[in-house]
Simulated assay, not measured.
Amino acid sequence: MYIFDLDGTLYEGTAHFDYYAALMKQELPAEWQKAFERDYEQMKRGEHAVKIGTAYDTEQDAVLELDPFTSRITAVKAWNGDELDASMYTNGPQEFDFEQIVAIGDGWWLPFACARHYGIRDCQPFYHETKRYMASEAFQLEKIEGLPVFLKQLSEAVPTVLVTNSDAEDTDRLLGELDMRGIFHKVVPSAGKPAAAASLFEELINEFEHMPQSVTSVGDNLMNDVAPALRLGMRGVFIGTSVKSGDRLEQAYTMSEWMEREKHRISRYAR
């Protein structure tokens, strides 16, 4: 069985993240806007304390470096990268939410962290405005050539499930634009990842009567899609950079790369 993420996984591009960031930058005083832009660009290049794979404490303005597979804190840093005392945080796996301890698992969360650091308390209106922009004619999804055909072939061989944090309406619209409606055996919108990821994956394993080691989670968010799967004994495919393949973990720079790699395996699977 395969479990797929939607946003950032089944289509490509980062223009919507930049649009989200620009909306919030414009809300700041003029003297802060250049600093916001500088920090955001450094984040995207992986040159800032806040980067994909970290977490951000919005109340303490602290950056938590994590072991991505155990969610344990390995270091705590200030916004400028200085080391901080980690004793205020748990020694066990760190719990994430969408407000205080935020997992920076993909490009949506970089503008969020930057905005919160510069004093914007509520990012939701800007997120919803970005989603409206993405639904307009002004925005074009970067489709992945051949992916709908590949997913249909895969779904004819094994169960496939879509698990996404997007709501039902947005999910249906995106699947329509991507020519992927009706492909997946099950679609789970408003999934609440990463907090609910492990329980959702366990439910799907039981529902489809698969052993964890025969289930693969594919996504561009290390903490949402991959780390919870690995902790359950599943396989994970991370679409992105800065992660090395290992036991039960596969990394691909793009979905197209992984798709080409996976095509020859499809005939081996049986429902």
Results as ranks from 00 to 15, higher is better:
38 R>P: 14
39 D>I: 04
175 L>S: 06
63 V>H: 01
57 D>G: 04
177 E>L: 07
256 S>K: 08
227 A>S: 15
193 K>D: 13
137 E>H: 02
168 A>P: 15
197 A>S: 15
253 Y>N: 14
21 A>P: 06
72 R>I: 03
238 F>E: 05
128 H>A: 12
150 F>D: 05
16 H>G: 14
78 A>I: 00
167 D>G: 09
136 S>I: 01
228 P>C: 08
172 D>Q: 13
267 S>G: 13
63 V>F: 03
62 A>V: 00
167 D>Y: 03
55 A>R: 00
22 A>R: 11
188 V>R: 01
146 G>Q: 05
95 E>Q: 06
51 K>L: 13
87 S>Y: 00
31 E>P: 08
108 W>P: 14
96 F>S: 04
195 A>S: 11
92 G>N: 03
241 T>V: 10
169 E>P: 10
228 P>L: 07
210 H>D: 12
202 E>C: 04
32 W>L: 15
232 L>E: 09
258 W>C: 09
174 L>G: 11
173 R>V: 05
256 S>R: 07
196 A>C: 11
18 D>C: 14
209 E>P: 01
173 R>Q: 10
83 E>T: 03
142 E>P: 02
17 F>K: 07
104 I>K: 00
98 F>R: 03
201 F>Y: 11
118 Y>W: 09
216 T>K: 04
129 E>R: 10
89 Y>G: 10
45 R>D: 13
207 E>G: 12
25 K>A: 15
231 R>F: 06
268 R>V: 07
117 H>D: 13
